[in-house]
Amino acid sequence: MIVNTLSLTGQVALVTGAGHGIGRASALALAEAGALVVASDVDFARATETEQLIKDAGYEGVAATADVTDEKAMIAVVDDVVRKFGRLDVVHANAGVLMAGTALTQTLDEWDKTFTVNVRGTFLTVRAVLPQMIKQKSGAIVITASVSGLIGEPDLVAYNTSKGALVNLTRQLAVEYAEHGIRVNGVCPGWIETGFNDPVLGHLDTAELDQLVDRQVPLGRQGTAEDIAPAVVFLASDGARYITGQLLPIDGGLTSM
């Protein structure tokens, strides 16, 4: 049955940036699909909240903490997962930051932090998990890119450029590690109502935001983290067993305008 290909029963999943927003929603969805989920976040209190939400829903989850920009910390988290659970099947590399700015107003510190978290952090997450997945000869990696990595947008020079890097990192990893049975895909969220876009949209009142959404999003609303999570589950599952190197826009039609 088709539905069985979406099951992750018996698998172990690691989610970074799992303390809120898309990361939390995907951690819950992966657990609901049957995976034991390790919810990792730089803020351990938030990671613990996600763990409790997973357990309250009747599923298996544990909290972990690591700074994705710290190579030793990411290796330690992965080693701990493998030591405790014996395997690592799914990774959602989700941690990221957004800071508004143009080529003239973005500070170098903001530029560097954006690339350190979004690009270096994703790279180090993937590099930490690859040895185990190669050993298993299987694995699914889902990277949170963005529609911002597919198009140009005002006032987002560092963020858009960093997400563009993740778009091509997804393709590069997919090509390089397919021979080991590892699939690498990305989700490209549009405007998601989690507070993450507040540096760009936060100055708008409700009426102004509604007007902007009506003009630019064909479905007429911002998305939610729960709109993204099912796609993460799908790309991690056997339902996507012949899909790798792909970037899936989840944006209410924004990039079709």
Rank of each mutant, 00 (worst) to 15 (best):
Leu166Gly: 06
Ile75Ser: 03
Lys55Asn: 11
Thr5Trp: 00
Arg171Asp: 04
Ile75Arg: 05
Cys188Met: 14
Gly139Thr: 01
Thr161Glu: 08
Val142Trp: 00
Ile228Val: 12
His92Val: 11
Arg24Val: 08
Cys188Asp: 09
Leu98Val: 01
Ile182Asp: 10
Val3His: 07
Phe44Ile: 03
Gln52Cys: 04
Val142His: 04
Gly34His: 09
Glu176Trp: 04
Met257Gly: 10
Thr144Met: 02
Thr114Gln: 15
Gly121Tyr: 01
Lys135Asn: 02
Lys72Val: 04
Ala29Ser: 14
Glu193Gly: 14
Val142Cys: 06
Leu235Glu: 07
Val3Gly: 02
Glu208Arg: 08
Asp70Gln: 09
Val175Tyr: 00
Thr170Gly: 04
Glu60Ile: 06
Thr50Gly: 15
Gly220Cys: 10
Gly164Gln: 10
Asp210Val: 03
Asn94Thr: 15
Gly17Val: 11
Ile141Ser: 03
Ala27Glu: 13
Val12Pro: 08
Asp238Ile: 15
Phe85Tyr: 15
Gln132His: 10
Val117His: 15
Gly252Glu: 07
Leu30Pro: 15
Leu6Gln: 08
Ile2Ala: 08
Met257Thr: 14
Leu248Glu: 01
Met74Tyr: 09
Leu254Thr: 02
Ala165Gly: 13
Thr48Asp: 14
Ala240Ile: 11
Glu226Ala: 02
Ala158Asp: 08
Thr105Tyr: 13
Glu110Ile: 03
Gly10Thr: 06
Ala39Thr: 04
Leu166Gln: 02
Leu28Arg: 14
Val42Pro: 06
Ile182Met: 13
Ala236Asn: 11
Gln216Arg: 06
Leu150Ile: 01
Leu36Tyr: 09
Gln132Asp: 12
Ile182Gln: 12
Ser162Asp: 10
Val233Gln: 07
Tyr59Lys: 09
Gly139Gln: 02
Glu110Asn: 12
Pro230Cys: 03
Met133Val: 00
Leu28Ala: 15
Thr65Glu: 10
Ala31Lys: 08
Arg183Leu: 15
Asp56Phe: 05
Arg83Trp: 07
Ala29Gly: 15
Asn4Ile: 00
Leu156Arg: 07
Leu247Gln: 00
Asp112Ala: 11
Ile250Cys: 07
Tyr242Gly: 00
Pro131His: 05
Gly61Glu: 08
Gly239Asn: 11
Ala174Thr: 03
Glu32Ala: 15
Asp155Ala: 00
Ala73Tyr: 05
Val175Asn: 00
Gln106His: 06
Gln136Thr: 10
Val81Asp: 11
Val157Ile: 15
Arg87Glu: 11
Ala128Leu: 10
Gln52Glu: 09
Val175Thr: 12
Asp43Ala: 06
Asp227Val: 12
Leu130Thr: 10
Asn168Cys: 01
Gly34Asp: 08
Ala229Thr: 01
Leu254Asn: 05
Gly19Lys: 06
Arg241Asn: 08
Gly10Ile: 01
Gly223Asp: 04
Thr122Ala: 14
Glu193Lys: 14
Gly149Phe: 06
Thr9His: 12
Phe234Pro: 10
Gly58Asp: 06
Leu219Asp: 09
Gly139Met: 05
Arg83His: 13
Val82Ser: 13
Arg127Val: 05
Cys188Lys: 03
Leu166Val: 04
Ala174His: 00
Val90Gln: 12
Gly19Thr: 13
Ser26Asp: 09
Ala76Gly: 13
Lys137His: 12
Ile2His: 08
Leu166Tyr: 01
Gln222Val: 02
Ile22Met: 05
Glu49Thr: 07
Ala207His: 02
